[in-house]
């Protein structure tokens, strides 16, 4: 086979592969707004987003000086604790050392994927990934505690407890937070 024929064959295979991939993604309904169920898209688009006047911005710092805590909105709870109310404005605390099997999801919404969380908690609450980054000194350290809110609660009801969380983080000498909505 000549080089030109080989090149044409490679191009055809590549185009076919890309077409198949795009087709599969489209058929499966990508999670971007324009590819969601219309009713769900409408709900998300009509959500009242808060306007924050004071847009504070902490000066940049090197990643290897970051002491990082995770804050999820997945309505997580410890297995033996009380259930999380659907309108809770409080947050739950999760020791870094607690095993994955002790962490459950108690979010009120049925409109997000839970299969991934069932398979691997790190898609929602990536304590293990963060720990690996600390061990490799990519970040300075991971927090001893991480946190979760109930994401269905209106943001304005959370502010008081976020301020309490901020004090807790500062007391623990945490300087960086990664926020993880679901």
């Amino acid at each position: 086979m000549s080089l030109i024929n080989l090149w044409i064959l490679t191009a055809i295979v590549t185009v076919y592969w890309l077409t198949q991939k795009i087709s599969a993604i489209t058929e499966n309904g990508m999670a971007r707004l324009d590819q969601m169920a219309p009713a769900q898209r409408e709900v998300l688009e009509s959500l009242d987003c808060p306007t924050i006047a004071d847009t504070a911005f902490v000066p940049p710092r090197p990643l290897n000086q970051c002491r990082v805590a995770l804050v999820s909105s997945a309505g997580l709870m410890k297995r033996k604790d009380d259930n999380v109310s659907g309108s809770s404005s409080d947050y739950r605390v999760f020791e870094n050392s607690w095993p994955e099997r002790d962490i459950l999801m108690n979010h009120i919404s049925v409109n997000f994927d839970r299969t991934a969380f069932a398979e691997d908690i790190n898609v929602v609450f990536p304590r293990a990934i963060l720990k690996e980054m600390a061990e490799q000194e990519v970040i300075e350290r991971t927090a001893a505690k991480h946190y979760a809110f109930m994401g269905a609660t209106a943001p304005d009801k959370l502010q008081e407890n976020v301020e309490r969380l901020a004090s807790e983080l500062i007391d623990a000498n945490i300087n960086t937070v990664c926020l993880l909505p679901v």
């Binding site: 998300l44 960086t176 679901v182």
Partner: peptide
Amino acid sequence: MSAIAHWLEQAGISTVVIGLVKSHLEKIR
């Protein structure tokens, strides 16, 4: 989550949001 980022930042803590709904990120900034 984006609103929480603003409030934590006001307290002096650096934040990053991993967001799934782009229009919300664009509105709440």
